[in-house]
Design a protein around this nucleic acid. Structure first.
Lengths: 194, 194, 194, 194
DNA sequence: GATGAATGAGCATTCATTCAT
DNA sequence: AATGAATGAATGCTCATTCAT
């Protein structure tokens, strides 16, 4: 339990102040233990960071993995898209923590080899998840037939991340609802004119 | 000159190691001066960071401000869109420095009030710049008439940023060319069927 | 058995790294038990050190105490001298462990009251042992008659220790065989000139 | 000046408590400066230890190098021998500091490569110094003609070190004066009987 | 303007020791 | 007897900042 408590505390503190201000003493204090106890579970600060990355992975897994689509045909491709978009466009406002930690980890992955792989993996999973329902959506005629699925899924990941970044930076200035509608319109098949 | 040299050194070091590893001594050393000299020009580290933000603003201004579109009709809306997309999709690979510093500053702006305003302003300018050529493009029939210009410009900023993030993280895995084509296709007016 | 195993581990680790690098955790690990178990047998580190001193005492006792001269007239005074010299001059090269631990303990005895007495006692025993065979040797005409027995025995202890220190420091540079011969020559009675 | 002051403080603290208890904070405090100042002059603790070794080298150089024999024929070989013996037999009692630091460095040299060379060099110089006056003394008929000069000088270094160790450990128990006399007697040429 | 020297506050990590089980 | 978990008090070292020159 202590391990989880410490990883959670680290997670929260990264969300609040970024890696730059992450202090082992604060993590331990928030978890209600001695600094030495923290090092009993995580010999180095890097080990702690890895644990935070794992926590995030689990959050992602719970949100994007097939297991999440529990019920059979529980959600249509369109609903899945809406959920994903909502995550970056609205959810960011409600609970920005996950997004802040995510961006911190992405930036850190550029230099720290021990988080590079998990970050890249997370991005790949994300894209694969989107790809899956885009394919289904195209087959069902919900999305345009001329979509370049792989490009579109990479683009949607980019759109969601970039939107989250903007919402984080200036929540009031981002036209979330209108962008969501616009994206749907661009992916929807052309209405027959006649 | 000393000021610029110091700000440039700080900029480079942030690009290389993020804020987390930015050390006044290293900045001074790279600029070829004593740490005390650095503090003569920038009393606190925060002042130095602000100077880096200003440098970035200038880079952006040179790229996105009306002044950049020097000659009249020097570029069509479509060319401007391509330039912008290329910046996030290809340029990131060639010179990732600017993007790394940009993301570092965005993340820092979430806590540091002194960079919040410039970051938000940069995002607003960016959107306004895109909006301008989207409007022109729609008028010229280059882009779809049913575009929600404001949503689309916010979305394009998001797309470019999110793409840059992915390219930074895993350059080989991003289908840049195909995404650029897909975006153009989605913004282009529908071909008449007959 | 656990006690002995722990004391032996401590002894080995002191031989390898000196007191400076002696860690209770390593001692326990080498003995194959938990740190807490070590503290069950030796409440404090100092207790452990005392046990190491006792181990060394036993090694010395086995080598220098009358009990060692098991058989009657098992060895002549000259042979005993040669054995003692060999210990410092040659044995140091073969198994430096005992000597390293011994010197570590001597140095520590200068500040730690709990090892001072055993160290002084060991030195006294050593001298007494040498004194005994010097007396016998003089009586048997093997050693010079004008020897100041007490000074000579103190001097031999010094010589052996000082030699061991040099051999430890730079084994190749010490003329062990020639020094052994020289000492014997100096202690032997003067040859009649005529 | 600060450098010297810090090295001197370290020297004193090693003399008082050995390497085991050497703390950068205490060294700085005794020198009257901040710990950070210590690290300004000596980036690592090891650098500080090296400086202590250099101090000791200088003390030795002042005592044993030819420069010390300032005046021409200022001292006879016998006087030089007496001075050397006195250093280990009596001086140890008066100012044990140098000897404690010396032994600490010898022990440390067994594991720390950065002090190994200076220690071995110091021992070599010492022996060379003794060798020089033993040669002179033999030529002048002050010492026995059948001396194995190299063995004898190595033996005298051993004797002096071993004596110092015993004096350090138990000053009252060491028959310094009688040992000095005994050594002189053993090195003196045989009196003609007739 | 520029610098060498100096520092306070802090940082990750270590270590002998304790204690409930 | 033995151990996993926990801790207080360091410990070497770092860093932004200051100041006399």
């Amino acid at each position: 339990m202590q391990r989880h408590s410490l990883a959670r505390s680290a997670y929260e503190l990264i969300a609040e102040g970024g890696f730059e201000h992450l202090r082992t003493r604060e993590v331990a204090a928030r978890a209600g233990v001695n600094v030495a106890t923290l090092h009993y579970y995580f010999p180095t600060k890097e080990d702690l960071v890895r644990a935070v990355m794992e926590r995030l992975d689990q959050e992602f897994a719970a949100a994007y993995d097939p297991a999440a689509a529990a019920g059979p045909e529980s959600s249509s491709p369109l609903e899945e898209l809406r959920t994903d978009l909502a995550d970056g466009l609205y959810q960011t406002r409600v609970s920005p923590q996950t997004w802040v930690v995510w961006f911190e980890l992405v930036m850190r992955s550029l230099r720290d080899a021990s988080v590079r792989a998990p970050v890249q993996e997370a991005l790949a999973h994300w894209r694969a998840h989107i790809e899956a329902y885009l394919v289904a959506g195209v087959q069902q005629g919900i999305f345009r037939a001329d979509l370049d699925i792989q490009a579109a899924s990479a683009g949607l990941v980019a759109l969601i991340n970039g939107s989250a970044l903007q919402v984080l930076s200036d929540p009031g200035a981002f036209p979330a609802a209108r962008l969501a509608a616009e994206v749907e319109r661009r992916l929807a098949p052309e209405m027959p004119l006649s």
